[in-house]
Amino acid sequence: MSGMLSGTLLVRKIAAADPRRVRIGDVVVLKDPANPNNYLVRRVAAVEGHEMVSDNPDDDSFVLARDHCWVLADNKRLKPKEAYDSRTFGPVAMSCIVGRALYCLRNGVDHGPVHNSIFSRRQDSAVLEVELNVDEMTRNHKP
C-alpha cells in the first residue's frame, strides 16, 4: 500500500470492474501488474476513452483502450518511480481491480470513509451504514 492509505481497509469486492462500477476518483484495490500475488491500493485517474498526455514532449499521447484504466498513488510528494503506479507500469486492465476501498482505520481515533467519487460514495453508503462495525475493526486492527 505504499504511497496510499495505511492501516486497515474495509473493501467492497467488485466481481467485474468496468467504467459503470469503478469511476474516476475511486480508491481501488488491484492486483500488481508485475506480481499478481501482491495487491496495490491506488486511485483511478482515467478510464477507457480518455486521452493520456505526458509532461514529457518526447512521449506520444494515447487513448486508454477499452476495459483499461490509469491509476495513481495519492502521495504527490513521491516521484513517479517511487509511487509505483500507471506512470511506471502503464494502463491497467479493469479485470485487475478486485475492489473499492470504503473505509480506512489507521487507529482508534484516526479513521473514516475513503474519499471516492460521488457516484461510488452514494452507492456504498448503504454498505457502510449496515456493515461497518468500527469497534470490531479497532479490536482486530494491527498497527
Rank of each mutant, 00 (worst) to 15 (best):
V11C: 03
V127Y: 13
G99S: 11
V29H: 09
D85V: 03
R20L: 02
P91M: 07
V53I: 11
S117C: 10
L105R: 10
D55M: 04
I97R: 04
H141R: 14
D58T: 12
R77K: 08
Q123P: 00
H115K: 09
W70M: 07
V114Y: 09
D32T: 08
P19R: 01
D124Q: 10
V63I: 14
Y84A: 04
N116W: 03
T8I: 02
V71Y: 05
N38G: 10
S117Q: 06
A17R: 01
P113H: 12
S2E: 02
M52N: 03
I118A: 05
D74S: 10
G3F: 06
R87A: 02
A45P: 00
D85P: 00
I24H: 05
N38A: 14
K13I: 02
L30Y: 03
G7M: 08
V71P: 01
P91G: 07
H115Y: 08
M137K: 04
G90D: 08
A83W: 08
L128A: 07
Y39P: 02
R106P: 00
R42G: 00
A83H: 06
E129Q: 15
V109I: 15
R121Y: 01
F89N: 06
S117M: 01
L132Y: 00
S61L: 09
M4F: 09
D55K: 11
V63E: 14
S117A: 15
V134H: 06
V109H: 14
R21S: 10
N116D: 06
G7F: 13
E48Y: 08
G99D: 05
S2F: 11
N116H: 03
K31D: 10
R87E: 12
N75M: 12
A17N: 08
V22C: 06
S125T: 15
M4H: 05
K31P: 09
D26H: 00
K142Y: 11
T138G: 04
S95W: 15
L5Y: 12
E82P: 00
E136R: 10
M1S: 15
D26G: 02
Y103E: 07
P80G: 06
W70K: 03
R12G: 03
S95Q: 15
R21C: 03
V134W: 10
K79R: 09
I24R: 12
E82Y: 01
E136K: 11
P33F: 07
D59E: 13
G49Y: 02
D85Q: 01
T88D: 15
S54M: 05
V127T: 14
S61C: 00
D60K: 08
L72W: 06
L105P: 10
P57L: 09
S2G: 10
V27D: 14
V44E: 07
S61E: 07
Y84P: 00
S86W: 11
K13T: 07
H68W: 04
F89E: 13
L30V: 07
P36Q: 13
W70P: 00
S95F: 09
R43I: 04
R66P: 07
N37S: 14
R21K: 13
D74H: 05
A45T: 01
V47M: 01
R139Q: 11
Q123A: 13
D85L: 05
E51Q: 12
G49N: 04
A83D: 07
N107W: 08
